[in-house]
């Protein structure tokens, strides 16, 4: 691996000061399971890493009046074992169990998971100067695009790699960001950005900014949530298609719905149209049939990935059926 220096701040202020604003030269190191791969693959070549692991206060999970506040340095394995998360935010909990491997969850962090770079093989190969690396072409458009986006794929057809991103949007998470200008909060839905906003990044972090905390607002007692994904292998693999569904029920009727697909677009894909079809209806077989049929509406598959349209219908059906059964 290419050599680099290491800064070891003990405070967030110290970390932000050393980070500066040049992403190419100085990068934050959390768990490192993605960043080290990028350096080994020569996609990133930082001169210095700023090790966040010595900073106090970023590795805790606390319950406050605002909900569950999770530090960015909390390890995925610890988060997956948190009983409050399991009970209160099931879609996020379930997606964690499907994330990576025990070895990577023991090291990888929440902030790192949300900020990981895409898995597109052209992006990860140093010999392809693709748009996401500042080049002029998307090689996947006319190339090997089996695992790529079926929505929003005009400029760059990555799919967002984070399993957690979709359920974070479905469960209305708020992401707290710190940077040279101070702290700010942004909804998970606004945090992830599409290639037409800036093809070079996958979220709205400015250079020198860090995710420091995720806040999960308390879910309504009438809400039920679920995450379902499908992949080629049952052990370590990325999702081919996943969906997070949150339904707020009033008696037998769906009062409010949130439906977010992952692994089908460069950002988690929220589907207001499907939510509208669910709201005001009973959660019965007719509703499920109707909504699932509409799941792939608006998709624009590439040569090798039209199968994802079928998967969208399948994961949505599984998700809704699971919620239907849990209602009994």
């Amino acid at each position: 691996m290419r050599s680099f220096k290491m800064a070891q701040p003990r405070s967030l202020a110290g970390a932000l000061a050393v980070l500066g604003g040049d992403d190419d030269k100085v990068r934050a190191l959390a768990g490192g399971t993605d960043l080290l791969g990028l350096i080994k693959d020569r996609i990133a070549a930082p001169e210095m890493l700023v090790n966040l692991k010595g900073i106090d206060g970023l590795g805790e999970i606390t319950e406050t009046a605002r909900g569950l506040e999770i530090g960015a340095l909390v390890k995925l394995a610890d988060l997956a074992e948190d009983a409050r998360l399991r009970v209160g935010w099931p879609a996020i909990h379930q997606s964690l169990l499907e994330t990576a491997t025990p070895q990577l969850r023991n090291v990888g962090t929440l902030g790192g998971n949300l900020c990981q770079r895409p898995r597109c093989w052209y992006f990860r190969n140093e010999h392809y100067d693709c748009k996401k690396k500042g080049g002029t072409r998307c090689f996947a458009h006319d190339g090997e695009n089996e695992y790529h986006a079926v929505y929003g794929n005009g400029i760059c057809c990555i799919v967002h790699p984070s399993n957690l991103a979709g359920p974070m949007i479905a469960q209305e998470a708020i992401i707290e960001v710190a940077g040279p200008e101070g702290r700010r909060e942004v909804t998970a839905e606004a945090f992830f950005t599409s290639p037409d906003e800036d093809v070079l990044r996958e979220n709205q972090l400015a250079p020198g900014e860090l995710v420091v905390r995720v806040i999960l607002p308390p879910a309504s007692p009438k809400a039920r949530s679920v995450y379902v994904e499908t992949r080629e292998r049952q052990s370590f693999d990325w999702a081919l298609c996943g969906v997070s569904v949150v339904l707020t029920m009033a008696d037998q009727e769906i009062e409010a719905a949130r439906v977010v697909f992952n692994a089908v677009a460069p950002v988690p894909l929220r589907r207001h149209d499907l939510e509208g079809m669910l709201e005001g209806r009973r959660l019965n077989e007719a509703t499920v049939d109707k909504v699932c049929l509409a799941a792939p509406l608006g998709a624009n598959p590439l040569e090798q990935n039209a199968y994802k349209l079928t998967l969208m219908k399948a994961v949505l059906r599984r998700a809704l059926n699971r919620l239907k059964e849990s209602a009994r």
Partner: peptide, 9 residues
């Protein structure tokens, strides 16, 4: 402000 130790490469 904190003095941030830097070591390596």
């Amino acid at each position: 402000q904190e003095e941030v130790p830097v070591f390596g490469p």
